[in-house]
Design a protein around this nucleic acid. Sequence first.
RNA 1: GGGAGCAUAGCUCAGUUGGUUUAGAGCAUCUGCCUUACAAGCAGAGGGUCAUAGGUUCGACUCCUAUUGCUCCCACCA
Length: 878
Amino acid sequence: MDIPAKYDPSLTEDKWYAYWLEHKIFHSEPDEREPYSIVIPPPNVTGVLHMGHMMNNTIQDVLIRRARMTGKNACWVPGTDHASIATESKVVARLKERGIEKSSLTREQFLEEAWKWKEEHGGIILKQLRKLGASCDWDRTRFTMEPALSKAVINTFVYFYKKGVIYRGVRMVNWDPVGKTAVSDEEVIHKETKSKLYYLRYFISEEGKATGKYIVIATTRPETIMADAAVCINPNDERYHWLKGKKILIPLINREIPIIEDDYVTMDFGTGCLKVTPAHDINDYEIGLRHKLPVIDIINDDGCLNEKAQILVGQERFEARKNIVKMLEEAGNLEKTEDYISPVGHSERTDAVIEPKLSLQWFLKMEDLAKKALGSVEDGKVKLIPDRFTNTYRHWMETVRDWCISRQLWWGQQIPAYYTPDGECFVASTKEEAYKEALEKYPDLKIEDLTQDEDVLDTWFSSWLWPISVFDPEKPGFPDRESNKELAYYFPTNDLITAPDILFFWVARMIMAADEFMGQEPFSNVYLTGIVRDKLGRKMSKTLGNSPDPLVLIKQYGADAVRIGMLLCSSAGNDIFYDESQVEQGRNFCNKIWNAFRLIKGWEIDENAKPSDAASKAMEWFASLLSKSIETIADHFSKFRISDATMTIYKLFWDEFCAWYLEAVKPAFGQKIDKCTYEISLYFFDSLLKLLHPFMPFITEELWQNLSERKDGETIMLQPMPKAGEINEKAIADFEIARGCVVNIRNIRQSKQISPKQAVELYVKKPFASSAAPLVAKLANVSKIEECTEFPGTTGVNFMVGTTEFFVPVQVDTAAERVKIEAEIKRYEGFLAGVRKKLSNERFVSSAPQAVVDLERKKESDATEKLKALNELLQRLK
RNA sequence: GGGAGCAUAGCUCAGUUGGUUUAGAGCAUCUGCCUUACAAGCAGAGGGUCAUAGGUUCGACUCCUAUUGCUCCCACCA
């Protein structure tokens, strides 16, 4: 045999992936079989593979490969997301490196640059997925900004607009001054930030002149005082009653503003006086609306102060804050400062401090959509796994606000709203259609007079159509099951595997879109993976530099090892603490499989020999254990307990198949193996490979191909998953007894001492006389075993190794044993009383399901028997 | 501030409507072994008052109450 003792993934992985591609194994199209489809959560087109993707896509691949092997028509749609903000900011940064400002380019020039970037970097992440072994149907690769999908987005916008749920309005939005765009509420992350609370003196005005009297107002944002529109007090605050009707001067610029009263102000925070700055604070804006205050916007899109501020014009907001504090201090307006920790909103994409800003944006009304989407989850039509996310989901759906869908960017689907010169808006899928509509009202209008809205749509406004649009390039935005076979067959998809942080951004909205356009849920199960963290519990991120490069890992350990490493430690919804030792474990497992194969392949066959007793016993046992494990694995999968399923097969292969089965059947050194045992062993190995395949596709293909002669194009990927056969519980129980014995004998041989506990076990199990004896002899490497007939204390265990006879005297502390047994008897008596009480309860017997009652009956009889046995044992000890 | 969840071995987690296990697994640790498939291995071993305090029960890791600590979500008091 010249198979190396170490498995080398670099010799197999690329080879088999190319083989699968060549034979179009991933390809899917509708047929008579039951469909099983997954759409990939499209990664950012400019992204690179990180550990989160690895996790996520490994699970998807496991599910899709398993589905393929259980006879389903498996379809995994890959693709990428155009990711407006993320991509645009990358392109802007790259231009800047070349000394080009975005503002110096036209929209067309910029988009050209962006597409160039996309062509260069767009495919990287998908290529990386192949390294992982992802069995996506690459022919179906989609991009959220490709023509058909963009068209779907535009049509969807027009659809909702005509329906009256899209509107345009001036609202306070979350402004990202770095990305220079509005972001949705969900894209704002609040972080506890150290800041200062500045106590400022505002002097009372009389006919526009400052008097000596002043009030003190606390603020964290002194740079916005120039935008103040009023000072607000609580109407019930007696301290400030004297202020009513008075006017106040804004420090430094001495503009006069009124005192107003509003319940919003809490009396015991700060000084009880609140400066109202409608343009720069969401709450102030609402107070402003109630009191009809003017809105003075002093901050530009880039976060710098403008002329309306009168002072510090052109300065960036944080710089302005520093400077104005100095000025206030010099002017005698600063009373004191206090350290203060407050939550400050940051942009998810650029990490810039969010500026609340008034602007004209497009919104989608969410109320009705959210209600239905909540229903889908509450009715169980969409199951969240783990289901504790249902609570958070509900909460979000009940408090959802209208969705700001416009973004002040260029990379994305431009909003199909067209304006006439006097500002009237026509919404239609194309400029021509909008023009046609506009002509009815403005017969003299020329098409050149129409200008399209500058903004693009939020990326999520395209990804919420993903599970529909990927199957429907024909009638984008107006899906039609009747005419579209693909959509009719693969939609709705089965499972969605994604991270919980986009449950609302994406998952909820996909449910809404699918309900609206398909009248159906887009998937039945949403498996939420955890966030991959490092050993210290930090989220893996590029900026922290704590994320290993998955491709380097794959190169070092092999894709199968990385997959196993991830799967073993990932239970749904729990964060994953990544540690390289997990991948090492995966690699070691690969090697174990490899060496088991080496052993089996190395056997020489004796055509005439019959299986030994030990081998027969082992085969009987393993056949049952295999069936049992197949059932267990199926059960784990049905509950999305992927890591349990992984562990089940891991232990089955390593702890049972290698450690016990192979040891039991393996011929002595230099001996041949009988044909029957050989073939059955081969069959077991083949079954195990198939069970392992979804988890570790490459090594299983390699070994399966080498297990017997295969034709070109054959692959383990398309083999039927082994089905559970009959389970012989007695064979399993017998083997367990033998195993217990072997362990005991090994212990005796190692220590020449036996503990009372072990002696009792040996005695009670009485295995040596049973049919398991040959097995025990084989596995314990013992040639003769004698039953120990007397209770320990007087005798010992007798066995032979080779020709040497061993006798191990056993001493048992009978008094201690008695105490133990008595305690156990007491426990059983209590237990039995409880069970009997339950069974005598009429209500329990009549209302509980039959299976539960039967279980109780079984418990009763089992316990009765056990009690009897224990009592007998106690008698013998006396 | 409101809501949800978690707390089990050094680490990561199981524990299936309270019982048949003296609370399990994997990894890590320790002790022996280079035994002809595998040292990326084999054979063993140690390690937990199941966060704390009460309660219900014949019996609680499991149910109830309170406390402590952590996580997440929502809201944001200037």
